[in-house]
Amino acid sequence: MVKFHFSRKQLCIPYALFLILFVIIPMLLILFYAFTETVDGMIRFSFANFVNFFTSTAKLSTLLMSFTVAIISTAICLLIAYPLAYILARSKFKRKNVLLMLFILPMWINFVLRITALRELLDLIGLLGTQNYLNTIIGMVYDFLPFMILPLYTTLEKLDNSYLEAAADLGGNKFTVFTKVTFPLSMPGVISGITMVFMPSMTNYVVSDTLSNFNITILGKLIDQYFTTYDNWHMGSMISIILLVIIFITMLVTGGFKDGKQEARGANLW
């Protein structure tokens, strides 16, 4: 009996090795690179990158702009997705799943192709090359909206009607019912949606490059630049570490998001 259990447990060894080799060690390498620099071919310990980041106008303003773009994109996603998810979840329509499907379907189509298509549309209506920030934000919303709709829909759909009825019975008007009951109860969905839109909006440089004609640099782009053009992997790693810290803080503030991404991406479809 003991032997059999042992064999099942053993199955996680390859996966554990895989995680150590290709996830843990690479992350440690980033940490290592971030706090070292190469001088005359020798690698040595240094805080230079850290200091540089927080004294560089360019990097700080990139950080600030990435934040702003991400916050606005996330806010717009939320403002569109919440009422939409609410309507869908509360509708009496028999096959509302199918309706939901229509809204989240693009999530599974290659995003480079979709962003390129959006670029053509923006070009056609004359926004390309003139409204770089607007285009980037439109692009982020376009790309990540489904990731906001889905978790919101899931929580709102599960929402127990009896709570709402009870609130109404106790004399709450529609507005109070919403602000005091519905919205607080849907917070897990809101948080899950925000975390899934906010992070990529700060880093997905394919969107900003394509739609702003390389006019806007976001944090992800900066990391890419340090690896592909500026040839300073140490600085690139330092920016990654700072990004990781931001991710970590976001997680602390929002209380983590567990399997949100997985839930959103897969479980509801396949």
């Binding site: 996830v23 992350m27 992800g220 990004l243």
Partner: peptide, 18 residues
């Protein structure tokens, strides 16, 4: 959870380093 939560660019460069 690391690759799930992580920004894709960070995963990418960590692999590039390795």
């Amino acid at each position: 959870q690391i690759p799930v939560i992580n920004a894709e660019i960070v995963t990418a460069i960590s692999l590039a380093l390795l």
